[in-house]
Design a protein around this nucleic acid. Structure first.
Lengths: 239, 239
DNA sequence: AAGTGGTCTAGACCACAAA
DNA sequence: TTGTGGTCTAGACCACTTC
């Protein structure tokens, strides 16, 4: 781990353990230089991580302030596995059930989404997510089979992302998401416990690797009462 | 404008004008140092802005790559005024109609949301957004009246954020958002053209200033067929 | 006036990717 | 082997906030 990352984790630990509380000021950057025996640039990199993860707020001329991070757990706000999200919802039981897995020849829509030109095959998999027994999420994934090898039921039902990152050694870089509302389909009705709901929240994700290759296209359909998206948007520079 | 910002804008211009296209490599950081007569740190700050805004992708050992930015316009992904969003939807006419404006004594819910302890008053305002004539969005805003002074119908119907930033000199820092789906209320039915829709997408926003004061609480209700949220989530360091 | 974060510089070494 | 981005250092000046 780099020096600035370990400083980041150290300060984060002080926030989590309430050695630093919401509203408190951090030591100044020059004080932190002495405390961690680091250059100002290294301290500033650590503070930038704290900012990016929503833990502190800076403003010119003032000391940095610790923010209140309790309002949100932000489970869906970044790229992460369903298991991590599930951990945050401790009161509910979470089960993932695979309903389909095959290596298929993609249709035009999927070829287009995954930017496939030739005869590359694609893993298609469908999973139902049950919260406290109710089937409330239906995920359909398409993965480029030139990049991802040897998917099995066990991998898919446990943690796909662990397999992709730790076993396949893929470096996931970023994901584009589009959230809309859509009318339910016959498949939704068949696989989900929709009760009387007539719409679902539809989340399309396009996931990219380090080298800018797209490797995964996902359609995630959520029953509206179980959908929740949280986000902290920092002010960006104008474009 | 700082040096790194002007370098950012210069490179951005080359992407927009297709002097640099999606998939192209940028010059190396050391080459850019010469081109812009800048230090490596300054170049790297400019490149970080390009990354944060989704224009390029870096990876170690390789040159940086220009990304495809056409997939998204990301109108709702950051804090910005409705006018900016509207500009992106050129094909539709957009009208904002104020339906309520008053300086009120807040109830417990609003006091809690705005972190108000004493007798501070609050601006409450409601606006209906019409796309091509249809009332599809209903916004209800609460603004701390100790911070925001002198709201009028004209300000509200034009650009509230321009007034807050340029006239009041407020520095908006970040906003927390929670997106859920909810059943419609009588007020929704009265003020919006809901057709037969029975649910709306509900976006609660808490907007903070530079000094970590919360100054605005907003509830924005969208007819589901007109709702769309786009996001590019970069891989963050683990926490 | 003193202290803070923001910007900028110049130089060094490392790990990784590609030729 | 060469070039790339990633990390780290030390020092300087500025604009802003607070006292």
């Amino acid at each position: 781990m780099s020096k600035y990352e370990s400083i980041f984790h150290d300060i984060l630990g002080k926030i989590d353990s309430h050695e630093l509380n919401a509203g408190d000021s951090l030591p100044s950057e020059r004080e932190l230089m002495g405390m961690y025996d680091a250059s100002r640039d290294t301290i500033r990199k650590a503070l930038n991580l704290l900012i990016q993860n929503g833990y502190i707020q800076k403003s010119k001329g003032r000391k940095s302030i610790v923010l209140d991070t309790k309002r949100f757990k932000m489970p869906f706000s970044n790229i992460e596995s369903f298991k991590e999200v599930a951990k945050a919802l401790e009161e509910t039981t979470v089960v993932t059930e695979m309903v389909y897995l095959d290596c298929i020849t993609p249709d035009e829509r999927v070829k287009n989404a995954l930017n496939i030109k030739g005869n590359t095959k694609v893993w298609m998999l469908q999973r139902v997510r049950r919260l406290s027994g109710e089937a409330v999420i239906l995920d359909t994934d398409f993965l480029n089979a030139d990049i991802v090898k040897g998917l099995t039921k066990e991998i898919v039902e446990n943690s796909l992302y662990e397999y992709l990152e730790d076993v396949c050694g893929l470096n996931i870089s970023y994901a584009d998401k589009i959230i809309t509302c859509q009318s339910i389909t016959g498949l939704d009705e068949k696989l989900m416990d929709l009760n009387s709901y007539e719409m679902v929240v539809n989340i399309e994700s396009y996931t990219y690797l380090d080298d800018n290759q797209i490797f995964q296209y996902t359609i995630s359909r959520h029953r509206p009462d179980k959908f929740r998206f949280e986000d902290r948007a920092r002010r960006m520079h104008s474009v």
